[in-house]
Simulated scan of single mutants.
Amino acid sequence: MTPRSARELSDGRSPVDFTEAWLRNRRLSAHTRSAYRRDVADWLAWCAATDLEPLRATFLHVNAWARALESEVDGRTGRPRSPATVARKLSALSSWYAFLLKLGAIATNPAADADRPRVDRDHSATVGLAPEEVDALVAAAAAHRGPTAARTRLVVALLADLGLRVGELVSLDVCDVGVERGHRSVRFTGKGGRPRRRALTPGVAAALDAYLDGRTEGPLLVTSTGSRMDRHAVFRLIRRLAAEAGIPGAARLSPHSLRHAFATTARAEGVPLEDVQDAMGHADPRTTRRYDRDRHNLDRDPAYAIWAARARRR
């Protein structure tokens, strides 16, 4: 069957309309949805600049775009785009074209066989934090005074004790907090639209009660005007607290730094990998291992356990 043209299929709708339809059919967090929208918009802008009809693109065009991305400097960081960023853009584009393929707008997916950069699963660009630095961050939050102090302590407690993603954090509502089998808990939608639940530590529960002060509805974290706190405010808060705590590289830290610290500390304290994986909502244990910054510590080499077991048998 010859694919219908975009005009015939969409009754005059633009590629942007396809993008919104595609995103509506994906279970994605708001943050991932925004990132994917930008990724496809970047591709469409490149197509326009090179006078290429997006629905007539081949894998050679997609490869050319990928190589162009690798040679560009990221305007936000001032550094070349990382292989992970380029790979994510190609993955988003492949998903976009797969959607068009299902609609019959194209005959093949040009991004499916594109040459994607190798992403080192053993590396993360996120700046990590040592347990002592997390303690310093918590102490800096505890020292805050004023109308936003209780919110600051709750934000840091949720990030440090639960290792939440910033998108998960700011999307929480008061009604998401409850009690299950004797545990204070919180329910939320994780990455990929998966329902998640986590237990609240006594520290988080105390910070939560102090902040809510009887409030029973609305967004969990709110601004002075009552609107939902956004991810950018959380980024600024973490960097400001890190600077107050004297943590090196404070300007490069992010809420994700606390998520990495959560995984590393949990593993160092002997929490099984599968339990850390479940807590963080990772589908692949290799992702969890990448978050464990202490995984290459020779103190954890299993050779020691084998030798000790042999010694005991003697």
Rank of each mutant, 00 (worst) to 15 (best):
N25W: 01
D42V: 03
Y291P: 14
R116W: 02
D299A: 15
Y211Q: 03
S71W: 11
A41Y: 00
A68G: 05
T189L: 15
R290F: 03
W96I: 01
G192P: 13
V271N: 02
R293I: 08
R4C: 00
L101S: 03
A233L: 10
A64P: 11
R181G: 11
A150F: 02
V40R: 12
L69H: 00
A45P: 01
I306A: 14
G270D: 05
A233H: 08
W307Q: 14
L273D: 05
A261K: 05
H123M: 04
A309H: 11
A210T: 15
N297C: 10
K191L: 08
A251D: 15
A48V: 04
L169N: 04
P219E: 09
N109S: 11
G203T: 08
A66L: 13
A64E: 11
D301Q: 04
D42Y: 08
R38H: 15
R259Q: 05
A279D: 05
V179M: 15
R197W: 14
P3C: 07
L52H: 10
G178P: 07
A311V: 13
A142V: 09
A45C: 09
A266W: 06
A263E: 10
V156G: 03
A210H: 13
G190A: 11
G218M: 11
G104W: 14
G104Q: 09
V40G: 06
N63P: 06
W96E: 07
R239N: 02
R181H: 14
V204K: 01
D292L: 14
G163C: 01
R215H: 05
R197D: 00
R300Y: 15
L103I: 01
P54R: 09
T287S: 14
S124F: 07
R4N: 00
A48N: 12
T77L: 13
R184Y: 00
A243P: 01
V16I: 08
D17Q: 15
L298G: 00
P272W: 14
T19G: 09
D284T: 06
D42H: 10
A233V: 03
E217T: 13
D294P: 01
L90D: 04
E168K: 06
G146P: 04
R300L: 15
V40A: 07
A311H: 14
P15N: 11
A125H: 07
T288E: 03
R252A: 15
V276R: 11
P83T: 09
G203P: 00
